[in-house]
Nucleic acid binder design. Structure first.
Lengths: 207, 207
DNA sequence: GTCTATACCTCGATAGAC
DNA sequence: GTCTATCGAGGTATAGAC
């Protein structure tokens, strides 16, 4: 974090491209093999350098993990806030949640290695890494809770379930699409429409 | 597999309890640390034996993985088929899917170490293990596809989305509840009601 | 059926040349 | 900034006593 700020302040005297490459390849390997199963030798190989060189850019495997995890949430949270902020002030709660769903899916599916790695390995990492990553997750969950509480107060949300259950169920469902979404079976916008229809109105005709 | 058949044919001359214990502890450790990060020494420790003794019951870590994965699907699929088969012949499609949801959640949440291990590590295991496990997954997916196709033909399913998308989205959402369901926040049957309401009728009032 | 002891391998990380 | 070489630790799996 501090490093990034410094890089922006002064002209870049180090090769930041290699650092980004390492993070990208690490995310891809964490996603497909898990954290423990991924060796730094593999990450180095995929990045076109030797294992020892990684330690010029990172202090430890653990630090790489932390940055991969954080980025997995950030790319989603930033897109969601952008989409919601772009709406007119008088937008309905349904319109706001619709924008959030589109933003969540966009960030999720366009940075699949970071987001899928996060989803897959979060439950399996050491407690220390979890603790460092927890706040960024909590903040994003809070953002959704506010969206849904607002919808409930406006009478737009069905009162059958608690907002916490809805948030957990819907985010969990959206997140899992990164495991099966196939961009060759239709446009992204068509996919978003289908998912929104299920989330908003369900799968069955009303009894 | 062959071993199991033999055990049922002749009176059990070996200690099958230790074998089951190893599988249970392996599932729990695979769930929380991942496959590669779980050592056979840990599995042995948790099972109350020494590492070398595992090889009396299993040929390899890989074989343990296979049995844990299969059981993760079987416990769910069996409960679902039971619940659906118990319905009267003239049940509506909605009633049949309702029974399937309840059965899926019941199996999923009552064997959390096996089901969560399966969900978490399936994307991270060696290709050979995946291939051996694929058929049992495919069969369960086919079962849901038939349920949903039937509902569509009867005009009970909303035609907004394809049955494949609905199946992937709903099963993914149901599966992820094992990561956040809290039995202390209400009864299982109340939980099932909330989830079914979201799946059937969505989260928002109709526009 | 479980034990101890250990072979053989690969890991994360470090040191120092270039 | 990247390399080679290597350390100590800990992994799966095996052998053979009990």
């Amino acid at each position: 974090m501090a490093t990034k700020i410094k890089e922006k302040m002064s002209p870049p005297e180090t090769d930041t491209a290699t650092r980004e490459r390492i993070l990208l390849e690490a995310a891809r390997l964490f996603r497909h093999h898990g954290y423990a199963a991924t060796t730094l030798r593999e990450v180095a190989d995929a990045s076109g350098i030797k294992a020892g060189s990684i330690y010029y850019h990172f202090e430890s495997k653990d630090q790489i993990l932390g940055e991969v995890l954080d980025k997995g949430i950030q790319v989603v949270a930033e897109t969601v806030r952008q989409r919601v902020d772009a709406l007119p002030a008088d937008a309905t709660a349904r319109e706001r949640v619709a924008a959030a769903i589109e933003g969540h899916l966009w960030g999720l599916l366009h940075h699949g290695d970071f987001t899928s790695a996060n989803i897959r390995i979060y439950g399996q990492i050491p407690a220390a890494a979890k603790n460092r990553h927890r706040k960024i997750r909590r903040d994003y969950a809070d953002y959704w809770d506010r969206l849904l509480e607002d919808a409930l107060e406006r009478g737009e949300l069905r009162p059958d379930s608690s907002t916490a259950v809805i948030r957990l169920f819907v985010i969990g469902a959206l997140n899992w699409t990164v495991e099966w979404y196939n961009p060759q079976k239709g446009s992204f916008q068509d996919f978003v429409k289908q998912i929104r229809a299920i989330v908003f109105d369900g799968t069955f005709v009303r009894e």
